[in-house]
């Protein structure tokens, strides 16, 4: 077997996505001459960072056939908690971050336990989590937009640059690489895919589906926490509404990246390209001076289109079937 062609085949999805991405860039550069500037592209990459970081962990839930809708609330809460630990309780910033990460992991663990042990659909559990985490965030911050002025090293996480490139971009790419390796090269990754592909078969070959899922939701919460810390540092602000609606962007990136919500397959790199695409679409709307309200509209449409494409349904066939349904002929008359 030719290894080169095998490698090519394995990354078909990602390559095709990359093609679409390039196409989108061409269109955008034709629409606006402000698009292909270093400033603008850096801006896009920067705004993609938070979604990208969340995506690296959130992608595991769909691979097992579940979903995590709590990532945005978790991120907002993480920023607020980190600020409380550092600036109200006066902890060292590293300790504060570590404690925040542990809390994030605990919440993800709880999501996983409730979903697996009590057989509650994941979207219900994580939606309820999204709500109560938002409540806790509001309660702790008293609903205020708290400005974070110190400590300086903490702020460097978000606004610092290394070799001219913002640090959050390093963080994102590190997490993408780690997540890609975790999914494709480790025992845990294999088990995650197996649970999503056929839980019964996986169980009969020695995989513990519950344990796997609990870890999956824990990872999802941890990356959301990391995104929240980066966000707090980047915006120098802790605010419960800071990430509102991001879960939809995260799902969009994952779905666009070719991951089926039915489970059994997924691509971290694809999701990253999906995140960049979401970033470009938003950027395009900005460049066209469209109001920000177009953002959820675009996201919603992109999700539906990507889902239908992932599902492999032929749209003309469905429409034809619908128009040919009994009663349609009479209705037309």
């Amino acid at each position: 077997m030719n290894t080169k062609s095998a490698l090519f085949k394995e990354h078909m999805v990602e390559l095709r996505l990359f093609g679409v991405l390039l196409g989108l860039m061409v269109v955008l550069s034709l629409i606006s001459d402000r698009f292909l500037t270093v400033d603008n592209l850096t801006n896009v990459l920067w705004s993609v960072c938070l979604i990208g970081i969340m995506t690296t962990g959130a992608i595991y839930a769909p691979i097992t056939g579940g979903i995590d809708l709590s990532v945005a609330s978790m991120a907002a809460l993480a920023g607020i908690l980190a600020n409380v630990f550092m600036n109200t309780l006066g902890m060292n910033w590293i300790v504060a971050i570590l404690i925040t990460l542990v809390i994030g992991a605990g919440i993800g663990w709880l999501n996983g336990v409730v979903t697996t042990k009590f057989l509650v659909p994941a979207f219900i559990v994580t939606m309820a989590a999204k709500t109560y985490l938002f409540g806790v965030a509001m309660l702790v911050s008293n609903g205020d937009q708290i400005t974070i002025m110190e400590p300086a090293p903490f702020l460097q996480i978000g606004i610092g640059k290394l070799l001219g490139i913002p640090i959050p971009i390093y963080i994102m790419f590190t997490l993408v690489i780690l997540s890609h390796i975790l999914l494709k090269k480790t025992v845990f990754g294999r088990r995650t895919i197996a649970v999503g592909a056929n839980e019964v078969a996986a169980k009969l070959t020695g995989v513990n589906p519950d344990r796997t899922r609990i870890i999956v939701y824990t990872i999802s919460s941890v990356t959301a926490t990391i995104a929240g810390i980066v966000m707090a540092s980047l915006t120098q602000q802790a605010y419960a509404m800071n990430a509102t609606g991001y879960e939809l962007d995260v799902i969009t990136a994952i779905v666009v990246g070719g991951t089926s919500l039915m489970g059994g397959s997924g691509s971290v790199v694809g999701a990253l390209i999906g995140a960049v695409m979401v970033g470009f679409i938003n950027n395009g709307l900005n460049l066209l001076d469209m109001p920000s309200a177009f953002h959820p509209i675009a996201t919603g449409i992109v999700i539906l289109v990507a889902l239908i494409m992932n599902q492999g349904v032929s749209v003309p066939a469905v429409l034809k079937k619908w128009f040919a349904r009994p009663g349609a002929a009479e209705a037309a008359k």
Partner: peptide, 26 residues
């Protein structure tokens, strides 16, 4: 079987112990 996965993936899942390092890399 896990229909949506390759032959390698199906065979690998029952043999993770022998094809991975102690650190968990396949």
């Amino acid at each position: 079987i896990m229909g949506g996965i390759s032959i390698t993936g199906n065979i690998g899942i029952a043999n993770l112990d022998s094809i991975s390092s102690p650190a968990g890399f396949v």
